[in-house]
Computed example of a mutant assay.
Amino acid sequence: MNGARVEFRGLRRTFGTTVALDGLDLTVEPGELIALLGPSGCGKTTALRCVAGFESPDAGAVLVDGKDITRVPANRRDAGMVFQSYSLFPNLNARDNVTFGLRVRKVPTAKRHARAAELLELVGLPSQGERYPHQLSGGQQQRVALARALALEPQVLLLDEPLSALDAKVRVTLREEIRRLQLSLGITTIFVTHDQEEALSIADHVAVLKDGRLEQSGPPAEIYDRPATPFVAEFVGTMNHLPGRVTGDEVEVAGQRLPVHGQRPDSPDVDVLVRPETVLVTPDPEGEAVVVTSSFRGASVRLRLRLAGGTEILADLPGHDAARLAPGEHARVRLVERPVLVAPRTAAVADAVPAAG
């Protein structure tokens, strides 16, 4: 399969007074897996449905390999879609579900069955072809849905939160399988999710949406380490909010002066956004910070500490470094010397908590 280039150009879609997409501009390169990430109602599923042909934008265009497909009917678009709810035909077995589109195109039976066998092998279900959906687990049903989407060898694969109905262990396994298949086939893939871990773990690029607009797009490491806006910083990962005061290009926070990254609010009094892994904690009986709680997280331990002024801060430390930092112990706290994002003190981005949908 040859991946196609997909472009969203000024895409706008409204539903009554609700603006689902507000001038979305985004490009997906051939063979790339991009994750559309954001909270409920941010427009990510609407954008996907505009590519599939299930929604028509009010303005703007969708291009595939330079061809405007905005008004092309869904059944004439070279795209395969996998839904959250599997959407398998309950009266057809797995093999016939996979070959349904081929049968509609009047592909001969022998070729259809050969293609089904190939795809069921590809998704790890070589012996499940005769089983019906009710005889398959949720993860197996989603694999069949994936095979069905690939049967017509589409240029673009569209995945609308395909893993959200599965339990945690199956979800991790299947997302890795999806990534393996996508890389081996070289198919351009647009993956919609509200799960930041899911997006960061499998995507080449992550596009973070808010209120129908693109907040930031880039490789997962860039989105996490160098968020462009306070919203992105808060939505992707965990953030501490520490009181600080901006002076020039620096902010004074927790007894340190750090360079400011990004925009500066009009007021000098700000919230400084700091990730827990950039908080350095050292046991010190004379230290002004006090450990409030300690939570074991496998490879790391998350500490909650109360600073001298009463502000609490989270810190993620390797387990061996946290061994001497039990609740009630005193410590010294410092922040890694790196540029930090700041937000208006009165407008913290608490509304960016990930939500399902």
Score class of each variant (00 low, 15 high):
Ala4Phe: 10
Glu7Gly: 12
Gly23Trp: 05
Asp25Cys: 05
Ile34Cys: 12
Leu36Ile: 10
Leu36Ala: 11
Pro39Arg: 10
Gly41Lys: 02
Cys42Trp: 03
Gly43Arg: 03
Val51Ser: 08
Gly53Arg: 09
Ser56Gly: 07
Pro57Ala: 05
Ala59Lys: 04
Leu63Val: 08
Lys67Met: 11
Thr70Ile: 01
Arg76Gly: 05
Arg76Met: 09
Ala79Ile: 12
Phe83Ile: 10
Gln84Leu: 07
Tyr86His: 09
Leu88Asn: 07
Phe89Pro: 08
Leu92Gln: 09
Asn97Arg: 07
Val98Pro: 09
Gly101Met: 09
Leu102Ala: 13
Lys106Ile: 10
Ala110Gln: 15
Ala116Cys: 07
Leu120Ala: 05
Leu122Phe: 14
Leu125Gln: 06
Gly129Gln: 08
Leu136Ser: 08
Leu136Arg: 07
Leu136Tyr: 10
Gln141Val: 00
Gln142His: 13
Arg143Pro: 12
Ala147Cys: 02
Arg148Phe: 10
Arg148His: 12
Ala149Gly: 13
Ala149His: 14
Val156Ala: 11
Glu161His: 09
Pro162Leu: 13
Ser164Pro: 07
Asp167Trp: 08
Ala168Ser: 12
Ala168Gly: 10
Thr173Met: 14
Arg175Ala: 13
Glu177Phe: 05
Leu183Lys: 15
Leu185Ile: 13
Thr188Glu: 13
Phe191Val: 12
Thr193Phe: 12
Leu200Ser: 13
His205Arg: 15
His205Trp: 10
Val208Ala: 04
Leu214His: 03
Ser217Lys: 12
Glu222Pro: 07
Ile223Gln: 09
Ala228Trp: 02
Val232Asn: 03
Ala233Ser: 12
Phe235Asn: 07
Val236Ile: 14
Met239Gly: 04
His241Met: 13
Leu242Pro: 01
Val246Lys: 00
Thr247Arg: 07
Ala254Gly: 01
Gln256Ser: 11
His261Arg: 15
Gln263Asn: 15
Pro268Cys: 04
Val270Phe: 01
Val272Gln: 00
Val272Ser: 02
Val274Ala: 05
Val279Ser: 00
Leu280Lys: 03
Thr282Asp: 15
Asp284Val: 08
Pro285Met: 11
Pro285His: 13
Ala289Trp: 08
Val290His: 05
Val291Pro: 04
Thr293Val: 00
Phe296Cys: 01
Gly298Trp: 04
Ser300Met: 03
Val301Cys: 04
Leu307Ile: 02
Ala308Met: 06
Ala308Ser: 08
Ile313Gly: 01
Ala315His: 02
Asp316Leu: 04
Pro318Met: 01
Pro318Gln: 07
Asp321Asn: 06
Ala322Leu: 02
Arg324Gly: 12
Pro327Glu: 04
Gly328Thr: 02
His330Gln: 09
Ala331Cys: 15
Arg332Thr: 15
Val333Thr: 03
Arg334Ala: 15
Arg338Ser: 12
Pro339Glu: 06
Pro339Leu: 08
Val340Phe: 01
Leu341His: 02
Ala343Pro: 09
Arg345Thr: 01
Arg345Glu: 03
Arg345Asn: 00
Ala347Cys: 02
Asp351Leu: 06
Val353Leu: 14
Val353Met: 10
Val353Tyr: 07
Val353Cys: 01
Pro354Glu: 14
Ala355Glu: 14
Ala355Ile: 10
Ala356Thr: 14
